[in-house]
Amino acid sequence: MALNSLKDVYVDQLQDIYSACKQSIEATTKLGQAASDDKLGKALAAGSAGIAEGMEKLEQIASDHGFDPNGEFCKGMEGLVKEAHAHALDEQFGSDEARDAMIITQYLRMVHYALAGYGITVVYANKLGLDGDAALLQQCYDQTQDGHESMMGIAREGVGAA
């Protein structure tokens, strides 16, 4: 698809976020299963549920505008997922605390990608006068930001404290 307008860029970025979500949901679930800290595991399970909710909102927007949310493959998230596997799931650790710290690190890298995608699409939806889209995307952004803050709190309060 040629990117000839802001609307074209907007659709492209929505497809990118959707692809990123598809790739990150499985990795997030696996990170949660690998976590030794119960609070961390629950937070990652909530993160997976949040990603699924975001995907539903993206599917709704795509349906409303008549495009396929699967029209893009996000190579950025592909790399982040590979990093999560290499550094948090496949790596050998000397302690559960070290693994949990790396799980948080890798998860937050994926979250930051999502924040950038949701944040800019909120801006573009507003510029295009797509108030309904902007509201849904803002919900996704806010939920992702809440997940970021929750994970940072777990890192500050619990990981490595033992």
Results as ranks from 00 to 15, higher is better:
residue 11 V to K: 12
residue 95 S to P: 03
residue 98 A to T: 14
residue 30 K to V: 03
residue 76 G to Q: 08
residue 156 R to D: 15
residue 92 Q to K: 15
residue 53 E to T: 06
residue 74 C to P: 04
residue 115 L to R: 13
residue 44 L to Q: 00
residue 49 A to P: 01
residue 48 S to L: 00
residue 89 L to H: 13
residue 148 H to S: 14
residue 91 E to W: 11
residue 149 E to M: 05
residue 148 H to I: 11
residue 114 A to Q: 09
residue 134 A to F: 11
residue 3 L to D: 03
residue 72 E to V: 10
residue 134 A to Q: 08
residue 86 A to H: 14
residue 101 A to Q: 13
residue 50 G to P: 06
residue 32 G to T: 01
residue 141 Y to C: 07
residue 111 V to R: 03
residue 71 G to A: 08
residue 10 Y to Q: 09
residue 153 G to V: 00
residue 103 I to E: 08
residue 9 V to A: 12
residue 70 N to H: 14
residue 133 D to W: 06
residue 16 D to E: 08
residue 125 A to P: 13
residue 33 Q to D: 04
residue 143 Q to F: 04
residue 131 D to T: 15
residue 153 G to H: 12
residue 26 E to F: 01
residue 144 T to V: 10
residue 11 V to E: 09
residue 2 A to G: 05
residue 99 R to V: 09
residue 161 A to L: 12
residue 105 T to Q: 14
residue 1 M to N: 04
residue 38 D to I: 06
residue 37 D to I: 02
residue 114 A to S: 08
residue 117 G to I: 01
residue 37 D to R: 05
residue 81 V to E: 01
residue 136 L to C: 01
residue 150 S to D: 13
residue 34 A to R: 11
residue 102 M to W: 08
residue 62 A to P: 12
residue 89 L to F: 12
residue 135 A to L: 03
residue 105 T to G: 13
residue 108 L to I: 03
residue 108 L to W: 01
residue 124 Y to I: 02
residue 160 G to L: 10
residue 18 Y to A: 03
residue 107 Y to Q: 06
residue 122 V to M: 09
residue 17 I to N: 13
residue 92 Q to L: 02
residue 73 F to A: 13
residue 98 A to E: 15
residue 125 A to F: 14
residue 64 D to S: 10
residue 99 R to Q: 12
residue 118 Y to D: 11
residue 103 I to G: 07
residue 46 A to Q: 09
residue 47 G to P: 00
residue 69 P to W: 08
residue 160 G to K: 15
residue 108 L to D: 02
residue 59 E to T: 13
residue 59 E to M: 11
residue 63 S to R: 01
residue 111 V to L: 10
residue 79 G to P: 02
residue 44 L to K: 00
residue 147 G to K: 06
residue 88 A to Q: 11
residue 21 C to L: 10
residue 80 L to Q: 04
residue 118 Y to W: 12
residue 5 S to E: 11
residue 4 N to E: 15
residue 133 D to K: 05
residue 105 T to P: 09
residue 86 A to K: 15
residue 54 G to C: 11
residue 24 S to H: 02
residue 76 G to H: 07
residue 91 E to L: 14
residue 79 G to A: 05
residue 82 K to D: 06
residue 29 T to N: 04
residue 47 G to E: 00
residue 33 Q to E: 07
residue 132 G to V: 03
residue 59 E to R: 13
residue 91 E to P: 09
residue 28 T to E: 02
residue 42 K to A: 01
residue 65 H to I: 00
residue 13 Q to I: 01
residue 110 M to C: 15
residue 59 E to K: 14
residue 57 K to F: 11
residue 76 G to L: 05
residue 92 Q to I: 02
residue 39 K to I: 00
residue 130 L to K: 11
residue 115 L to Y: 05
residue 63 S to H: 02
residue 43 A to P: 04
residue 122 V to A: 10
residue 48 S to F: 00
residue 24 S to D: 06
residue 7 K to E: 09
residue 61 I to D: 12
residue 3 L to Y: 05
residue 120 I to Y: 07
residue 63 S to C: 00
residue 139 Q to K: 07
residue 147 G to H: 08
residue 69 P to A: 07
residue 57 K to I: 05
residue 150 S to P: 04
residue 29 T to K: 05
residue 58 L to T: 08
residue 42 K to W: 00
residue 104 I to L: 15
residue 76 G to F: 04
residue 121 T to C: 08
residue 54 G to R: 01
residue 142 D to K: 14
residue 161 A to V: 11
residue 119 G to F: 12
residue 151 M to Y: 03
residue 96 D to Q: 08
